[in-house]
Amino acid sequence: MLNVIIGRLAPSRGAVVFDGKVLTGKKPHQINQMGVVRVFQTPEIFPELSVLQNVMAPAFAKRDGAFRINIWRSLESERGIEEEANHILQDVGLYERRSHHAGALSRGDKRRMELAMCLIQHPRLLLLDEPTAGMSRHDTNTTIELLKKIKARGMTKVIIEHDMHVVFSLADKISVLAGGRIIAEGLPRRVRRSEKVQEAYLGGAHRLEEATH
């Protein structure tokens, strides 16, 4: 679903509409420029750049648009953007490692950095694809705390997550998909009580899928 929103895949039918504008058929960078930003399941970062530069790059996209030949000022003299990046790196706990090669970070750190890359763009819609997958319990909790903090700033997020602990700590509204259909939708406590969800989540998913065929 996220791939469809950000323009990586075309929907088989229907259209994606965000804020009254059709996203379907737009190029990925155009969708991003409209304020829809995504964190990938496997971290998509710039391994050869430093952590700081990884976080600064999206800020330029936000400030300068999709393309601008910006060679008059050096990177070092872009103080505003650097400060903002430093600030967000402090938020995600990577400030001390800001001059490291991004490629050398651990997987969890890479994901946190990717989150920072998305946050610096102040997206209107943030898409998170299993932000804690493969993380240790401790890292997961740090990430949850981080996401809660962001939530407090008021930003629409869509999170895809199998880990119910994460989902129920963060979500205001939950949609449960199984076999390509929404089987439950609504406030967390209602979804938690849904039989279909419990069945799907307890391993009955394929049975349900068979039924829908």
């Binding site: 950000i6 991003n32 998509e44 990177l75 763009q121």
Partner: peptide
Amino acid sequence: MMLRAIKSNQTRMNYTGF
């Protein structure tokens, strides 16, 4: 830096809005 980022991960550049 943008050019280096293209070398590093062109897909990411697109999804970053470039």
